[in-house]
Design a protein around this nucleic acid. Structure first.
Lengths: 197, 197
DNA sequence: GGCGGGAAATGACCTAGATCAAGTCTGCCG
DNA sequence: CGGCAGACTTGATCTAGGTCATTTCCCGCC
C-alpha cells in the first residue's frame, strides 16, 4: 500500500518541481478519506466544497436525465482528480453524482485551502493549467467520438482507453459511458464484429 | 472598429491584473491577421504553431469523419480562443480544420513566445487555468447534452447558448454542431414543437 | 445450501433520426 | 440580366439503437 501523499506529490512532480517546504505545505492541507463501494462522495443538488484526488480504487461521476437514466461523465481511478466542476467553481447546486465503484481512498482539500496553495505556490497554477489542457483535449475527443462514431466503434475506443478498467466494470456502466442502453451493448457484444475491408 | 490589442488585454484583465510593462510585453508578441470568409486557418494533417485569439468575426473548428461528414466542435466569435489543442500541445498532425465563417481578424502568438510569456508573467498561468476550467465545464455539459437529450432539446440549448450566432449561421452548420443531419433539422423546425405537460 | 437481488441475455416490437433522391429557392458573380 | 452553386425543403424508405417484458445467471449473504 503506497503512501497516498507520496502519490499526490509524484503526480504534481510530473509538471513542476516543489521544494521540501512546499511539499510539506501541500501535504499538510490535504486530508485522507476512504469510501466503501457504492458510497457517495457527492450528490446532485449539493454544493461541492473540495477538490478530490483519488489515491486508490475508483470513483465515477454521472448525471441522471429526466427519464431516470444515468450517464457517466468520468471514471477516476488512482491518480486522477474528480469533481462536479460547475458546482465547485460557482458554489452552486451540482447536477452530478459522484460515488465509489470500488473501495477507494482519496485526498481532499477545501476551496479556501486550495486558494491558499495557489497563492503560496504560484507554480501550481501551471500544474493545473497543464492538467486542464489534457482534460479539454480528452473531452473534445470524446465529444467527436459521440458525434461521428457508431456504438461499436465507441466501445472499441473505450477498451483501448481503459484496458484495465474494462475488466472490472459491470457492462451496464460501460454502456452508460459510451451512451447506449445495457441491452444494446449486450446484444452488440454477442455479435461477431463484422470484418470489413 | 475596436483595437484588437485592447480587446485582448481587456479579456486577460478579467482574470488578472497586468502592469503597463507586462501589457506591452503581451501586445508586443501577438501579431494581427485577418481571414476572409471560408479561408482556412488550419487544416487536418498540419501541425498547429500558434495560439489564436479572435478579435472580430467568427471562426469554427470541425472534424471530418470517415464518411466525409463535418462535425463542428467549436464556434469562436470575438473574444474567444480557438485551436486544435492536441496538435498544438503535442506538435502532432491535427485532426481538426479551422476556418472563418465570416470575415474575421485575430491575434496570433507562436508557441515559443507563449512560453516566454508564461515565464515572464506567471500570472498568465492563472488566467489560462481559469479559462480552461470554464472550457472543461462547457464540454462536459455539451457531452451530457449529447448523451441525454433529443435533437430538439439540443437545438433549444444551442439557441439559448448562442442567441446571436444562430441568426447568422446557415442551418446546416447548426445541424453539424448539435449532431443531426441538415435534412432532419429542416424537418424538425417545420414541426411545431409539441406542447407537453 | 437456499434465497434474494442486481447483472446480463434474449425476444418482439418501436421510433428518432439517417439516407437517398428529387426538387426549389436564393444570392451572388460575371 | 442570366446562370449556377449552395442552402433548404420534401418525400419515400431504411436502420441503429431504444423500449419493455421475461428469463436466466451469478454472487454475496443468512
Amino acid at each position: 500500500m503506497k503512501d497516498p501523499y507520496a502519490l499526490l506529490l509524484e503526480h504534481i512532480g510530473r509538471n513542476i518541481n516543489l521544494g521540501p517546504a512546499e511539499e510539506e505545505l501541500v501535504t499538510g492541507l490535504f486530508r485522507e478519506r476512504s469510501l466503501k463501494p457504492k458510497q457517495f462522495l457527492f450528490q446532485e443538488g449539493e454544493i461541492l466544497k473540495s477538490q478530490v484526488f483519488v489515491t486508490s480504487g475508483c470513483l465515477r461521476s454521472y448525471a441522471i436525465d429526466h427519464n431516470g437514466f444515468e450517464h457517466i461523465l468520468q471514471f477516476a481511478p488512482e491518480g486522477w482528480w474528480i469533481a462536479d466542476m460547475q458546482s465547485l467553481l460557482d458554489q452552486v447546486p451540482g447536477k452530478l453524482n459522484i460515488d465509489a465503484i470500488q473501495a477507494s481512498t482519496l485526498l481532499q482539500i477545501g476551496m479556501s485551502d486550495m486558494e491558499r496553495l495557489y497563492r503560496e505556490i504560484p507554480q501550481l497554477e501551471r500544474h493545473f493549467r497543464l492538467l486542464l489542457e489534457r482534460s479539454v483535449v480528452t473531452y473534445q475527443n470524446r465529444l467527436l467520438d459521440n458525434l461521428s462514431l457508431s456504438a461499436r466503434e465507441r466501445y472499441e475506443h473505450f477498451c483501448r482507453a481503459y484496458p484495465t478498467l474494462i475488466r472490472e466494470l459491470p457492462q451496464k456502466q460501460v454502456a452508460s459511458y459510451i451512451g447506449v442502453t445495457p441491452e444494446f451493448l449486450s446484444r452488440m457484444l454477442r455479435q461477431p464484429a463484422s470484418r470489413k475491408g
